[in-house]
Design a protein around this nucleic acid. Sequence first.
RNA 1: GUGAGUGUAGCUCAGCUGGUUAGAGCGCUGGACUGUGGCUCCAGUUGUCGCCGGUUCGAAUCCGGUCACUCACCCCA
Length: 412
Amino acid sequence: MTKINRPRGTYDLFPEELTRWQWAEQIARDAFEEYGFSEIRTPIFEPTELFSRSIGKFTDIVEKQMYTFKDKKGRSLTLRPEATASAIRAYLEKGEEQLPKRFYYLGPMFRYDRPQKGRFRQFYQIGVELFGVEHPGADCEIILLLSELFQRWKLKDFEIQLNSLGCSICKEKYSKALFDYLKGTSLCEDCEARKQKNVLRILDCKNKICRSAIEKAPKITDYLCEDCSLHFEKVKDYLHHLKIPYSLNPHLVRGLDYYTRTVFELFLPELERGIAIAAGGRYDNLIEELGGRKTPAIGFAIGVERLIANLDSSEKKKSPLYLAFLGEERILKEVMKLAQRLRRNKIPLIVNYKARSLKSQLHQADRLGSKFVLIIGPEEFEKGTVILRDMKDSSQTAVKKENLIEKIKDKI
RNA sequence: GUGAGUGUAGCUCAGCUGGUUAGAGCGCUGGACUGUGGCUCCAGUUGUCGCCGGUUCGAAUCCGGUCACUCACCCCA
């Protein structure tokens, strides 16, 4: 039979790697709870329209990266490419509750894209959403939380880039100004198209032609209305006050159309070609656009694969005990009974069932990383004892079965 | 979507410009060591040479196509 392989852009996680994932996830969960965020889990697929309406019809994500399919009744469904829209949908569907609301989530997202380093078709995001606080303190708190997380993950060397896109009026005004400014300048093919559909994205283009065209272009922060400008000043002020370093990047826009006012991205310097490892921003119009009341909101998402790839702490998994036996069936049965007793006392262990040389059993225990091995052979069987072998220093003692649990418990 | 590189044993890879039995290390199993791992030595074990087609007396090797993986562009977290 021919082997079946995993789909392109996906990967399998084995126990060795998962200990790092679990470590990182636990740190995130703890931090979120401390900041008053609670977990939310939403479906992995949603009506296609949820994403086309929120992310923006002319974004790459919606135009060419979604896993969209029809179910048996002909409904168009899409594997979620991100989670903000889902969180809002869930919040609205349950019935808008008292604000503010703080959610966090953790789970796989899906984008049909050519895989490469740090980019997968199924990838994990950890993120938070805060609904219902317009105050710039919320922006600061969200960025503080993000930076706190990276410190706890022992990645102190990050850079947070910050910008403000303003409200829809500022955005509109600036878009026009930028459009006018770019009239007559030649841009790359993609940006020529963006000019019509979404001018702001040109700021983000890495093409040399566009970069030089943009260099002297008006800055969006000069086009903010009084409220938005004040809001942005406050955010920066609070960040200073809390000593959270950031750098301003007036070219920072996001790939999703729903952002307003504060936007930010987090980079690690070691990461070549500057891909963001986490990003987020405010989306004050989105909840309304998805059918709710007008509700200010802000959030971020972290790319977990990119995060894990930068962790160096290799948390060691503790290995179970290994039960070896010598002789025939009745001794194995004795071992199985013993295993049952030990497990009931919460001692993790692995039983060897195959009657093979003690040498090979110890070899296996060594490979598995067991710190201790229990051995029962005919001799021990007769005497009602068990040999407890410490793999580290090769010392071993014969222990009466009755005392075994105690003995093991203070050793491990 | 565009471009480049790579597909040979479970893993990492060698195999020069085509030549007959396709190799090494690691791993795995066993032995030296009759009930004691990690070191050493010895033996054994493992292959549609990614797939399809072409050139040739002969293809892992050359050519075309195809698929997969990796990396970069693009995009994004």
